[in-house]
Design a protein around this nucleic acid. Structure first.
Lengths: 216, 216
DNA sequence: CGCCGATCTAGAACAAGTTTCAGAGTTGAT
DNA sequence: ATCAACTCTGAAACTTGTTCTAGATCGGCG
């Protein structure tokens, strides 16, 4: 059962360091080659162009090995998303968004992220489709992506210690972000509409935490 | 090119009557059998259990015919969702939700819808996964589902003629509904969390339309 | 009635995700 | 250095969505 091996052995996973098992250098390199090949293929062609045989060949790894590292195409794409989100988060940390209210900062952050994804719509499409298509067997990995998204938004709010209400708002914002992204990617909404919806949902933050007025 | 034939001939589509082409009785019956078989299979087994060969056999139709009616598994599941949503909408119309504010009524409606789907989680899973996985080739059908969802929410607000702002809020609520549903279905959120997030997002409606105060 | 074009059927064929397996390569501990 | 255990490779096999083909049926029309 190689899928099991993945869970216990070959998945370095992503708290920040590798909690599960050390992973030799060559293994780390393989993993990286795979993720890069995946992103490369996705970025032309989108979801359909990420074909497991192609990824394997393109990253110089046998098909079986690919499946040991990522037990399904969905796992692979979700991991790719996690990877890209980490880059994005790092970038955002360097230049945190300006803005009076938390809502403005969050909206600004999300629109910046949105523009980043716009530059590579097919990659974005592949990753987001994988994310929402994922079933229970991927929930751990999906959970991580959501945590990262939440962290990005929470960073933008600049809130020291959020109430449950605020966490709920942040979750809703995250959901909206993913949904509008999908809607835009399938050509069912314009960029303006995306912008409007992002701004709309971001008000929820101020609603539960006006700069310094209501506190329980 | 049978897929093309679908678009011009065999798809009655769903404004309310059949705009495209008459569709004989037997054809209507076939279509209905297919949708029912799809729902039945989805309802045990979920997305994976809806196998095109099974659907075909179960609805007493040849595989090729199935594909003439629904050009892909995704089309089929999205059509099934549209079908189910119509039932739901009809039911809701009969007993509109009570509540002081628009937010309460919308939240009430959505939670009722949510409980309806809870009764058949696997069917819900299959439909919603198909919906968000759909690519451009299904956008017309997906659009219809979103329109129906929007109509349901808008009905609950009881607003005569919504501003663009309110429409944006309604869209965001719709997105949140689908996302939380997915999150719950993949076991990444509890029912309480779903309830909380629905209530949170529904405040957006009151925010843009307090019962009778702000008007442009 | 008998014919025509569209529709339906049965089944083969193809594509891409996934699994499996035998053998070669690495690694780590002794 | 050597052995055992684990990992990687290459290739074939299997599954399920999708397409294709040849022939049977159907519905309308002269």
């Amino acid at each position: 059962m190689p899928a099991d091996a993945h869970r216990t052995k070959a998945a370095p996973d992503a708290g920040r360091a590798e909690p599960a098992s050390p992973l030799t250098e060559r293994q780390e390199a393989r993993r990286r080659r795979i993720l890069e090949a995946c992103a490369r293929l996705a970025s032309r062609g989108g979801f359909d162009a990420v074909q497991m045989r192609e990824v394997a060949e393109s990253s110089q790894v046998a098909l079986g090995t690919l499946y040991r590292y990522f037990p399904s195409k969905i796992h692979l794409l979700v991991a790719t998303m996690q990877d890209q989100l980490e880059h994005l988060h790092a970038t955002l940390r360097k230049k945190p968004p300006a803005g009076e209210t938390a809502a403005e900062r969050v909206a600004g952050t999300l629109m910046r992220a949105f523009r980043a994804l716009q530059r590579d719509p097919l990659l974005a499409d592949a990753m987001v489709r994988a994310l929402t298509f994922a079933d229970r067997s991927v929930s751990a990995e999906v959970e991580q992506v959501f945590r990262r998204t939440t962290a990005i938004i929470l960073d933008a709010t600049d809130l020291a210690d959020p109430t449950p209400e605020q966490l709920s708002a942040v979750r809703v914002i995250g959901h909206t972000w993913h949904s509008t992204l999908i809607t835009w990617l399938s050509g069912r909404a314009s960029i303006e509409q995306v912008g409007a919806d992002i701004e709309t949902v971001c008000r929820l933050i101020d609603l539960t935490a006006p700069p310094r007025s209501r506190q329980s």
